[in-house]
Design a protein around this nucleic acid. Structure first.
Length: 581
RNA sequence: GGGUUGCUAGCUCAAUGGUAGAGUAUUCGGCUUUUAACCGACUGGUUCUGGGUUCGAGCCCCAGGCAACCCA
């Protein structure tokens, strides 16, 4: 190693001994050495800037009809990451990838040496000091090679960023899902379709914003940190504000604040923002996700159905030429109008249970049991039972876009009673591919009724229901000033993007999905027997102090054959802690 | 929360309880029209972690970690 650093590999040295450079550490060390060698050549391995005139896709398109062997004497300047190298004695081909796509670099020794006369070693630098993964800039002319590959015939190049770590296998790529999510940047480099998915996501949200703007909606940013989390049935994340000495909740919906804005006189408001729910993780759930909520004064849920169609169509039209989209090999037809059907009708069709005619919960329960519905202990009303039947028998069958109308009052504490159907509310949910994709109601604006409903929620919460809402007094005060009749809508943007990008998992449309920390390795630990504090230092440098830990734990911990396992099962999550570092 | 599967070289994957291997990448040599370039040579391992059984464990047993999928 030390003998090598004294020589200059950029010049061909026939006496060089073969060296083993195979482990990750060795590869990295070799590349760091190349960094030094670039510096010795007077080059900056981490340059400041590159003026580019074109992108790869643009050139591919412009010169699509250029015949093999033809050249165009126009100078272009491009930049990107080297994704493949094919090096010959005095000629080399690199594939260069930029955001738009890839293009080949045609690197001819004679030409480069002639044009880069102040760097006599230029071609050898290219051969010896560049690697797949490096980011370079190149200027040259356009040439389609005899083999038909459009290329930039390079006059001059510059190393812009030397890459120190090897990229995954160019043929098999990166398939390990865990690594793809934990190191999304690598995923994005080597799996171009992933970039396309996120590009589409951005287009979809932009299209929705544009459409709503055209319709006269204005966008707000309501608070994320709240003293009380309301507007949905969900368990919130709790955090703490030191200076105010108060617990705060991360929002589980934007509903209650957007409605305050309607009270304040705005007639069309919306927010596209991050929502946090302290729930499990699945292919359809991430603890933080993006919600669109909008509220339109003087509208009811019938108006909102049409608006929902228009929003989804605006989003789909942005990324497709057709409204027939394929999701996981099923064709979904988004052409409006979408099916509109009541929950009661759907449950009747699926189970034969007629919820319009049950006189008592006991009757309904008996009939549902007969039909094979599983009834949980907290299902105590006809409305809850109707919802159970719907979830168990209908939901997953709603593949084509379907508005499910008129929900039971007791599971919809913020919606207005149905104008003709007792026990139901004016609410719809949109289902596509068996998933709830949107939720809407004619908003409840009777402050007295709203208070009663929230107090029922608060009672549930007091009884231990972690998903029930509390009473937001300020929201009720706002309603008492008067909220016009209003239609509201929530759309799960991530699920919509899943549909429009054919992604099977929500993690495929969230750039950095939440993953569990890999368990920390303990460096050392110490115990203060007077204060009963166990101090643990991890190899990543962080130090935690666990409070009120009995001395036996420390004694056992010293004796255990497996420290990490003992810590995970007996200390972590068992004692309160302060993070010291 | 429950179940199933997986975790081995940078990446993709093999390996009856019996010397841990291949392809690719890296390193070195050759090559002026390549497209997963090719030819030749050399390397590269905490088999996720900790115990146990065994003469011997990547493989069997126990416990734990992480992930994917399914279910609630």
């Amino acid at each position: 190693m030390s003998s090598k650093s004294s020589q200059n590999p950029a010049s061909d040295n026939p006496n060089k001994q073969p060296e083993s450079k195979s482990t990750l550490d060795e590869i990295r060390a070799t590349r760091l050495e190349k960094v030094e060698q670039l510096k010795q050549e007077g080059l900056n391995p981490f340059a400041y800037k590159w003026e580019l005139t074109h992108h790869a896709a643009e050139l591919q398109e412009t010169y699509a009809d250029l015949a093999a062997g033809e050249e165009v004497d126009i100078t272009v300047s491009i930049a990107g990451r080297i994704t493949a190298r094919r090096v010959f004695g005095k000629l080399a081909f690199f594939n260069l990838q930029d955001e738009s796509g890839t293009i080949q670099l045609y690197l001819d020794k004679k030409q480069i040496q002639a044009k880069m006369s102040d760097l006599p070693n230029a071609f050898n630098i290219l051969k010896k000091l560049t690697d797949v993964g490096d980011i370079i800039g190149a200027k040259g002319t356009i040439k389609r090679t005899e083999k038909g590959e459009l290329s930039v015939k390079v006059n001059e190049f510059e190393m812009l960023t030397k890459s120190l770590l090897p990229l995954p296998d160019k043929w098999h790529g990166l398939t390990d899902t865990e690594k793809r999510y934990r190191q999304r940047y690598v995923d994005l480099i080597v799996n171009p379709p992933v970039r396309e998915t996120f590009r589409r996501r951005a287009k979809i949200t932009a299209a929705i914003r544009r459409y709503l703007d055209e319709q006269g909606f204005i966008e707000f940013e309501t608070p994320t940190l709240l003293g009380e989390a309301g507007g949905a049935d969900a368990r919130p994340f709790i955090t703490y504000h030191n200076a105010l000495q108060m617990e705060l909740y991360l929002r589980i919906a934007t509903e209650l604040h957007l409605k305050r804005l309607i009270v304040g006189g705005f007639e069309k408001v919306f927010e596209i923002g991050r929502i946090f729910r302290n729930e499990g993780i699945s292919t359809r759930h991430n603890p933080e996700f993006t919600g669109l909520e909008l509220y339109q004064a003087y509208a009811d849920y019938n108006d909102i159905m049409i608006l929902t169609e228009n929003i989804v169509i605006a989003a789909a039209s942005e990324v497709f030429d057709t409204l027939k989209v394929s999701y996981q090999n099923t064709e979904i037809d988004l052409n409006p109008p979408w099916r509109r059907v009541t929950m009661t009708q759907l449950v009747f069709d699926a189970t034969g249970l007629d919820f319009e005619n049950f006189q008592s919960f006991t009757d309904a329960e008996a009939a549902a049991k007969e039909a094979g519905i599983e009834i949980s202990d907290n299902c105590k009303t006809i409305g809850q039972l109707l919802n159970e039947c719907f979830e168990q028998r209908v939901e997953e069958t709603l593949i084509q876009p379907t508005f499910v109308l008129d929900y039971p009052k007791e599971i919809s504490p913020l919606s207005k009673p149905h104008r003709t159907k007792p026990g139901l509310v004016e609410r719809f949910e949109l289902f596509i591919v068996g998933r709830e994709t949107a939720n809407s109601f004619s908003e409840l604006n009777d402050p007295i009724d709203q208070r009663e409903r929230l107090e029922i929620q608060a009672a549930k919460k007091a009884a231990g229901d972690l998903e029930a809402q509390g009473v937001d007094e300020d929201f009720l005060a706002a309603l008492e000033y008067g909220m016009p009749p209003t239609g509201g809508l929530g759309i799960g943007i991530d699920r919509l993007v899943m549909l429009l990008t054919d992604s099977p998992s929500i993690r495929d449309v969230i750039a950095f999905p939440l993953l569990k920390n890999t368990s920390a390795v303990i460096q050392s630990f110490d115990y203060d027997s007077e204060k009963k504090i166990l101090k643990v230092e991890f190899v990543n440098g962080s130090i935690y102090k666990y409070n009120d830990v009995p001395e036996e734990i420390y004694t056992e911990m010293k004796a255990t054959p497996s420290l990490g396992q003992f810590f995970n099962s007996r200390v972590r999550d068992k004692y309160g802690f302060d993070r010291e570092k």
